[in-house]
Design a protein around this nucleic acid. Sequence first.
DNA 1: CTTTTAGTGGAAAAATCTTTTGCTTGCAAG
DNA 2: CTTGCAAGCAAAAGATTTTTCCACTAAAAG
Lengths: 156, 156
Amino acid sequence: MSRKFEPDHTDRAILRLIQKDAALSLADIAKEVGLTPTPCWKRIRKMEQEGVITGRVVLLDPEKVGLGVSVFVAIETGDHSAAWIERFAATVAKLPEIVECWRLGGDVDYLLRVVVPDMAAFDTFYRRLTADVPSLRKVTSRFAMERVKSTTALPL
Amino acid sequence: MSRKFEPDHTDRAILRLIQKDAALSLADIAKEVGLTPTPCWKRIRKMEQEGVITGRVVLLDPEKVGLGVSVFVAIETGDHSAAWIERFAATVAKLPEIVECWRLGGDVDYLLRVVVPDMAAFDTFYRRLTADVPSLRKVTSRFAMERVKSTTALPL
DNA sequence: CTTTTAGTGGAAAAATCTTTTGCTTGCAAG
DNA sequence: CTTGCAAGCAAAAGATTTTTCCACTAAAAG
């Protein structure tokens, strides 16, 4: 499952470009990587089919849409059963404020990033989370003061 | 600076759609939100000009391109001077493995997410980071075992 | 040595999508 | 009233994407 794809130099050049700006026309991409639009398009289509490219999305300015508050929530659970994990995953999937959830190794079991309009909304979220998920041993919330860097572009 | 934009119901519907799939044609978006392509296009262009939409990007499967390891690095600094902060920010901007960097309130000063191919690469990164940045009081690295959820779509 | 086949690229045509233009309507300020 | 936006629609114009078909190369097969 999920066999690796071996992008060559040109594939990587294409990916580097469209990871930063997916609005580039094929003609522009082609010129940049030294090809014509057709082979460029074939490479991109192939990478989409192979699942290397998982999607094209629009990014928003959180402040501008009134969602300027990001909170990191570190969770330690007291229950590591499969049933608990499943339930937790379901809750995470259900709550749209949770934009990221990682299972970690070490002292912290899960790390979430939660996006809300303000502190009051976070409180509402927090109550819902702790009400929905049983056996939370320790929950630590840290508020983001500043987004120093944030990119969706992987270091290719 | 960065005045807020007040998207109406239709704007929000458009944003919800293209946050998930920016490859949708105007005709599809228009049909979905109950408009024709032209006003749809005008709304999108306006939101781009206003800075609500900050970009269009392609997302990749990290595993497929051999960047399956994400590490969260929590940093506590011993120096809170403006000079240190500036230097730290410069280093963060320079290192492409750092895909996210947040300044937090509370015990942890900064939280980074670092993307690398494997543990060895993380070690290389870690040495470079600690060599480049002075006055790090405490650095805690936590490895991601599983990406339970990860979306670029804000909860509109 | 050929011959074949798979892989990669290119030019041009076809199909589709984006962007512009011009017109219409509704509504509110004067 | 009527003037002046603001928002939407349809159709035309302009680009871009996608297809089709062909050429070239290198490596495997005969």
